[in-house]
Amino acid sequence: MSKTQIFIKGLIKENPVLVLVLGTCPTLATTTSVISALAMGLAATAVLVCSNMAISALRKIIPDTVRIPCYIVVIAGFVTVVSMLMQAFLPDLYEMLGVYLALIVVNCIILGRAEMFARKNTVGDSALDGLGMGFGFTLALLAMSTVRELFGSGTWAGYAIPYLANFKIPILTQAPGGFFVFGLLIATVAALTSGEYPKKNSFDCEGCPNAKFCGRDVCAEKESEENAHA
């Protein structure tokens, strides 16, 4: 795979949010406004690039059996760094993101890339992969927050949009609107790319990065049930 391909695949083809459906919690929670979505996307990208590089550099040192706790420590370290930097230089955004900033630690995209890419590839490739995936995540958050802020509060990044401001649909900025817009976006992507890209049809274990180290009994149980049906 060439360097450009490694970078590009995260943007659309394997977009972590809209195609792989990972990192759903921050996607739903921080997309009420474009500004907070952008902040979340960039913060997660910074953590992703740094943790991918660190894990790739340490890939020969970290023992295989305890790799997940090691990854979690590395990721939590970078999350702490990013949140301290934000607290110092961007206090408004820090307040806006609140607990979700600390929760980047448990964002499945980051652990997933460590497990699927960084531990098998060189530092440079891992950095590119992290950058691509991070921008894909940011792009998806931007798309979703644009829809929610435009139609929900009639503004875009704080600027009032003339016509839309008179016909707001406030529920879009609330919890139910989040699920609704997310569903519509994934359906749109599925319709536009039908058959062209591999897409997951349901939430199941193979797409979940945690599947590799979770109690596989759940997945095995599900598989055997599906086989029984077939």
């Binding site: 459906v21 699920f179 569903g183 994934i186 359906a187 599925a190 319709a191 997951k200 049809n201 349901s202």
Partner: peptide
């Protein structure tokens, strides 16, 4: 297009 994840959401 709505089959699977979208309809669940």
């Amino acid at each position: 297009a709505f089959r699977g994840i979208p309809i669940t959401l």
